[in-house]
Design a protein around this nucleic acid. Structure first.
Length: 512
RNA sequence: GGAGAGAUGGCAGAGUGGUUGAAUGCACCGCACUCGAAAUGCGGCAUGGGGGCAACUCCAUCGGGGGUUCGAAUCCCUCUCUCUCCGCCA
């Protein structure tokens, strides 16, 4: 979310930067026109309020002096404002909402060093601030070589034997779910525990167990709302409210059926008179019930209650972790605040029908270890590099080959100023696939959440914090990577060294 | 689920219709005293927004929203959250 004052002061820079973002046609002049109207409305409202306050004060003084005549005269004088002020307040609310709506759908501005481009094909490989292909190759595991044709993860013996069961999951939940069992389930758990332990003990992150269901406000803070609601799973906790809305649709459908029945019987009227009378009574009852429900809903309370009781399943722990500082002012000493969590993530994957349908690459539910940093504006860029190395450490310790890409402007996420993707090598697919994404958002989310910090030392006004988030890493996809990279010809899978303590010392799973 | 109590500045805590943006204490910052510190004294100390080059000034905000009133922290309605008791429960 942008600061309209900043846009006003930097209109040209804003236009130049926002035009780099894909599919955005808004320019500063559109927004400043709304803001001009807003300021006019505020100015005239303030004037009216000032007048009212002054007169009210005089009324108070007159009453104190028992001068009722003068008080009555003054009260008549203020009567004219009785309409202007509520109207002005309503206008102010409306125009402020208009401005907020216009601003809230604008994506963040990319840093200047983010490459221009239209899609992922224009992403640029990155080797660290002072890195090169040579230094990267030294730190990372090489691409593994196989004496046989490596299989995709779901074909590897240990998974194909039923311990990774998509058909079973489909019975319970439909497509894009999986049931893991036995040693595959344990390996997935081991990966999550390993990552969490690594970040908490070596990287200075604080472990958090956040709520998995969150309100719309939280999702607005981290940019999922209002633009990306179709990617989320939603639920509701308030039966009284949802019932009214759901009952209404049910009863309307019921009424429709009854009316169809009546129409049908009416064709051969005569002998159906009794049945029709009965159906008419039924229809009348339905209409009555519908009218009552509509009154309840129209009274607004129910519908608003329905809205506010709606809870969303988190698509990533970024949402609850980042929102931990929402609507608060933290002291500078508390920064950088580094938070991590291992949570399930839920994504509806709307619009990705047909993509990655085989295997567990793209699921409605998966586990992920997330890292979030809350920093000062001065340190967020360095923190971004640091967070990248924390994510890389996971893959390095697991001995997985990967590359790092700087996302181009066309591939950059809504709230990010710059993003690095970690792409792990999948020999079964013979390609690199995203396993982590590390983004710096500047104060974009902080404005949406109203999250600030108080600078240390001299008394200064609070400033917005900067936020960063990154996966460290997606556990489900990491499981895929381990299965594909450590597979053996006999269908067993070697357990990477660092996971063995979490696997009861096992060096291999799925062997005979 | 039932009954009751409550929500005020960084914290504690006054304040039931009139110059209260809000007493007092603590914390914090500046100055004085001191070799330094403590103690003490004096002063300062909310957030957002409008106007102004600036000094400054105006408006809004006492959990959120709505209402009564010339005027609301204070009265009414409503929502949310917290606490106490009862019931149910992993």
């Amino acid at each position: 979310m942008f600061d309209i004052k900043w846009i006003r002061a930097n209109a040209e820079a804003f236009d130049a930067a926002i035009s780099r973002r894909k599919g955005v046609s808004v320019r500063s002049s559109d927004l400043l026109a709304i803001d001009d109207r807003r300021r006019e409305i505020i100015a005239s409202l303030n004037e009216a309020q000032e007048k009212r306050n002054a007169l009210s004060k005089q009324i108070g003084q007159a009453k104190a002096q028992k001068d009722e005549a003068k008080a009555a005269e003054l009260m008549a004088g203020v009567a004219a404002l009785k309409e202007a002020i509520p109207q002005g307040e309503a206008d102010e609310r409306a125009v402020e909402l208009e401005l907020r709506n216009a601003l809230s759908v604008l994506p963040n501005l990319a840093f200047e060093d983010v490459p221009d481009g239209v899609d992922e094909a224009d992403n640029v490989e990155y080797f660290g601030p002072n890195g090169s292909p040579a230094t990267a190759a030294k730190a990372r595991a090489p691409k593994p070589s196989f004496s046989f044709a490596p299989k995709e993860h779901y074909e590897v013996g240990v998974a194909a034997n039923g311990d990774m069961d998509f058909e079973l999951a489909a019975k319970l939940s439909g497509s894009r779910f999986v049931v893991l069992k036995g040693q595959v389930a344990r390996l997935e758990r081991a990966l999550g525990q390993f990552m969490l332990d690594l970040h908490t003990t070596e990287h200075g992150y604080t472990e958090v167990q956040p709520p998995l269901l969150v309100k719309d406000d939280a999702l607005f803070g981290t940019n999922q709302l209002p633009k990306f609601e179709e990617d989320l799973f939603a639920t509701s906790r308030d039966n009284a409210s949802t019932n009214a809305v759901m009952q209404l649709t049910q009863r309307e459908y019921g009424l429709q059926l009854v009316e169809q029945q009546i129409a049908k019987l009416a064709d051969h009227s005569g002998r159906n008179a009794i049945a029709i009378a009965r159906l008419n009574r039924q229809a009348a009852n339905e209409r009555m019930a519908i009218a009552i429900l509509k009154t309840e809903i129209d009274s607004h309370q129910i519908f608003e209650g329905f809205q506010s009781s709606k809870l969303y399943l988190i698509p990533t722990a970024e949402v609850p972790l980042t929102n931990l500082v929402r609507e608060s002012i933290v002291s500078e000493e508390a920064l950088p605040m580094r938070l991590t969590a291992l949570t399930p993530c839920f994504r509806s994957e709307a619009g990705s029908a047909g993509r990655d349908t085989r295997g567990m690459l793209r699921q409605h539910q998966f586990n992920k270890v997330e890292m979030v940093s809350i920093t000062t504006p001065e340190t967020s860029v360095d923190e971004h590099e640091r967070m990248l190395t924390c994510a890389e450490a996971v893959l390095q310790k697991l001995g997985l080959h990967y590359r790092v890409m700087t996302l181009c402007t066309g591939d950059l996420g809504f709230g990010a100023k710059k993003t690095y993707d970690l792409e792990v090598w999948l020999p079964g697919q013979d390609t690199y696939r995203e396993i982590s994404s590390v983004s710096v958002c500047g104060d974009f989310q902080a404005r949406r959440m109203d999250a600030r910090y108080r600078p240390a030392g001299e008394k200064q006004a609070p400033r917005f914090v900067h936020t960063l988030n990154g996966s460290g890493t997606a556990v489900g996809r990491c499981l895929i990577a381990v299965l594909e990279n450590y597979q053996q010809e006999d269908g067993s899978v070697l357990v990477p060294e660092v996971l063995r303590p979490y696997m009861g010392g096992l060096t291999s799973i799925g062997g005979r």
